[in-house]
Design a protein around this nucleic acid. Structure first.
Ligand SMILES: [Zn+2]
Ligand SMILES: [Zn+2]
Ligand SMILES: [Zn+2]
Ligand SMILES: [Zn+2]
Lengths: 137, 137
DNA sequence: CTGCAATTGATAATCATTGTCGATAAGACG
DNA sequence: CGTCTTATCGACAATGATTATCAATTGCAG
């Protein structure tokens, strides 16, 4: 039923974005754009937004909504399953964590209340050792 | 250390907002404002934003950031402790849920990775029975 | 009752994100 | 390889939520 997903064209811009993603932590679309520009890329901001959104939909990158409302993106381990992060509020450095049984637990709670199509969000944030030492608290 | 919190003045506007909050589900600041207006209130939008923010800081109302980036507010049970919700994506109806030991679990994971000042977010969303029946899926 | 700082509200300003649209270039096909 | 079709670009305008301004009010301490 879902129209055959037409795989995106491999343009120079998309390639650059994928590359940049490889070495980074959670950053906003604008931050990724700035980084690209600082590396000499001429890719436009709107293009970065579009690419990140598309990548997030296919699960190739993780997206989290910060308290400020900005959406932050990060490249995940290749072909990785659903998972969660412990992220530094200061520098964005993230660690993937394991939340055993939570998936099943969530579904059970939903059933218990008659809710269907359950989805969940678990975000852990803190201050990493480096940032704590630097006192950027 | 934290400057003595000067309790907010009890103005007509603040009272109205508190009252409206009593009977509601998760709604955006703008939605709460519209509701007030429809009830005859003349309270301004900026005031609603300010009141909700202030209430969220003191924990008198819960605030969650939707995927869209909007912040949604809801009045919680009086004097309630930290807790989490199972919320309907369609109508906003929410149930408070219990996530045993997660607080301790989160702190442990943080310690394990050297992260400090751990905070967490757990949001469960689904479609409530009524909305499922109505097929607004 | 007075005086003044906290609060309000209409409005302008921000800021992230999305839409527009002519120009460009993947990539299918021959 | 050339062509052709059309997804994708990018500069810029538009949107929508939230915040800042600032003069006018008004809790409320004294
Ligand atoms: Zn850090
Ligand atoms: Zn999960
Ligand atoms: Zn609550
Ligand atoms: Zn519902």
């Amino acid at each position: 039923m879902t129209s055959a997903a037409p795989r995106p064209r491999m343009t120079r811009q998309r390639r650059e974005i994928l590359d940049a993603l490889d070495l980074g932590e959670f950053r906003s679309a604008q931050a990724w754009h700035e980084r690209l520009r600082s590396e000499g890329s001429t890719t436009g901001l709107a293009t970065v937004y579009r690419a990140l959104q598309s990548l997030a939909e296919t699960g190739e990158v993780d997206a989290v909504v910060a308290e400020s409302g900005e959406t932050l993106y990060r490249r995940c381990e290749a072909g990785e399953e659903h998972h969660h992060h412990l992220r530094c509020r200061v520098c964005g450095k993230a660690v993937e964590i394991d939340v055993p049984d939570f998936e099943a637990y969530a579904a059970a709670i939903g059933r218990e209340h008659g809710y269907g199509d359950i989805r969940h969000t678990i975000e852990l944030t803190g201050v990493c050792p480096e940032c704590a030492a630097a006192g950027d608290a």
